[in-house]
Design a protein around this nucleic acid. Structure first.
Ligand SMILES: [Mn+2]
Ligand SMILES: [Mn+2]
Ligand SMILES: [Zn+2]
Ligand SMILES: [Zn+2]
Lengths: 144, 144
DNA sequence: CCTCTAAATAGAAATGATTTCGTTTTAGAA
DNA sequence: TTCTAAAACGAAATCATTTCTATTTAGAGG
C-alpha cells in the first residue's frame, strides 16, 4: 500500500480504497495523461471486478479534490494526469505523446488584477495551457 | 445583407450563405457566448427550414477559420462567440451571464520561449482563459 | 478484534450532445 | 442562364459519460 497516496486521499476526505490507490499508482507511473477507459483496461486485470463508471467517478472526484489534474483537450474527451507539485503552476501538454511538463511560472496574477480593476469582475479560476509538441515529438515529423 | 460578414466569409474561403450570415449577425449582437441549440432555436423562425446539424457544422467551420471563437467551458459543451478584434488576445468569460470581455495582453510569449528553451518543445497553441464572475454578477450573489 | 453505517462499487441501462450519411438544394463562378 | 462543388436537410447513429438500484466495503467507534 502506498502510504503517500493513502495520506493524500485522507487529506482530501476520501476513503483510501484499493481501487483509488491503484488509479493513483498507475497515473503516477505515467509520464503523461490517460483516459478513463485506458486506465480501466489496464487496471481491471488487477481486480476481480472493476466497473468503468467507478473509474470515471474516481477520476472526477480525485480531480475535484486536487489529487489529480484534468486535461483540457481539443477533442473534448476526458483525460487526467498526476502531478505532485502542490505549488500553483501550469502545464505544457504534448498532443502527440501526451507528456505533461511543468511550467514554472505564469503572469496570470497581473492579468487577474487587470480584470478586477478594469471590469470590476472576479476571477474564480483560470485556464492556461500550452499545446504543442515536446522535444522528442518535434524532432520526428509526427503530428496529432 | 451584411457586407462585413460576407467579406469575412469570403476571406475565409467560405460561401456567404444566408444561414451563415444569420449566425454571424446573431452572435455579433450577443454580448456573450451561445450554444448551437440556442442559436438554432432563435434562428429557425427566420428560415423555412434550418437543421440543428447545419448550425453545429457552421459554428465549427467558422471557429476553425477564425471567424468565431469557441469557449472552453467546464461543462465541456460547445459554445461560441463573436469577437471582431483580429489582434492576438484572450478573453475573460463570465460563467454566470456568459459575457465575454477582452483581455488586452498576456505574458504568454515569455512562457512559450521558456518552454522551447528548456524542453526543446514547440508550442503550437495555447489556452488562456479566466473564469469567474463579471462586475454585474459579482454584485448579486449569483453563481453558476 | 467486532459492529455498524455512510461511502464506494457493480453493472446494466439510459442519456443526450454531437456527428454521420445519403439525398436535395443552392451560391456563385463561368 | 448553366453548371458544379459546396452547403443544407433531417432522420438516424454514435458513443463517451452518467444514472440508477442493489450490493459491498472502509474505517470509525466500541
Ligand atoms: Mn505539474
Ligand atoms: Mn476578443
Ligand atoms: Zn511529445
Ligand atoms: Zn456576468
Amino acid at each position: 500500500m502506498d502510504q503517500r497516496h493513502a495520506t493524500a486521499l485522507k487529506a482530501a476526505g476520501m476513503k483510501a480504497t484499493p481501487k483509488r490507490l491503484a488509479i493513483l499508482e498507475m497515473l503516477e507511473a505515467e509520464p503523461g495523461y490517460a483516459s478513463p477507459e485506458e486506465l480501466w483496461k489496464r487496471l481491471k486485470d488487477r481486480f476481480d471486478r472493476l466497473g468503468l463508471p467507478t473509474v470515471y467517478r474516481n477520476l472526477e472526484e480525485l480531480s475535484a479534490s486536487g489529487v489529480l489534474s484534468k486535461v483540457i483537450h481539443p477533442n473534448r474527451q476526458l483525460y487526467y494526469y498526476f502531478c505532485s507539485n502542490r505549488e500553483h503552476h501550469h502545464h505544457f501538454v504534448c498532443l502527440s505523446c501526451r507528456k505533461v511538463e511543468d511550467i514554472p511560472a505564469c503572469g496570470i496574477e497581473a492579468l487577474e488584477q487587470e480584470v478586477s480593476k478594469r471590469n470590476g469582475g472576479k476571477v474564480l479560476s483560470h485556464i492556461l495551457q500550452l499545446n504543442g509538441l515536446c522535444g522528442g515529438c518535434a524532432d520526428n515529423g509526427e503530428k496529432r
